[in-house]
């Protein structure tokens, strides 16, 4: 049940809306064009809820968490 989750950005789908960086700044930053920089793919336990919200908020469905 307690498998680690990793973040994955579908780079073709991503249009740099930037909502993920607002909701998960601990793991995701933005480059100068507004596209996400995933600093750490592994989602720590304490950020799991935030990661879920960031995934749900992406208007392009480009952010995924893989178990």
């Amino acid at each position: 049940m307690n498998r680690t989750r990793t973040l994955r950005v579908d780079r073709i789908a991503c249009t740099g809306e930037g909502l993920c960086a607002e909701l998960l700044p601990e793991l995701i930053g933005l480059d100068e064009w507004g596209y996400p920089i995933v600093r750490d793919r592994t989602v720590p336990e304490r950020l799991r809820g935030h990661a879920r919200r960031a995934v749900a908020a992406c208007p392009r469905l480009a952010l995924h968490t893989d178990a």
Partner: peptide
């Protein structure tokens, strides 16, 4: 020109 980092970077 599909992925932002490549398209702009």
């Amino acid at each position: 020109r599909q992925c932002g980092p490549c398209h702009f970077g």
